[in-house]
Amino acid sequence: MSIDKATVAKIAHLARIKVPEDEQERLAGELNQILHWVEQLAEVDTEGVEPMTSVAAQTLRQREDVVTEGDIRDQVLANAPDRAAGFFAVPKVVE
């Protein structure tokens, strides 16, 4: 498997990171180098091996369905780059 310029553009878009066209070629090279290196995992026999989902065998705990923290709107908004009327504000989405 090998990454070309178009694939870089596609994954950059999926990751929501703007990558200028003149950087795509170089990035494709770097990513391919890393991917070729990790592809040595194909040598390992993993027939019948369960994929690890957690290092410590544990089940998710449940808790009472109650509000544990609330009425902190101003704290939640305090670090927002833009806010209006008690909400996060973003560029216009719907015309």
């Binding site: 990790v38 995992l41 993993t46 369960e50 994929p51 690890m52």
Partner: peptide, 15 residues
């Protein structure tokens, strides 16, 4: 499957 699932299986091997 080729990357992430394979890696999580190798991770089981390492453990």
């Amino acid at each position: 499957d080729a990357y992430y699932l394979k890696a999580q299986k190798v991770r089981s091997r390492i453990k």
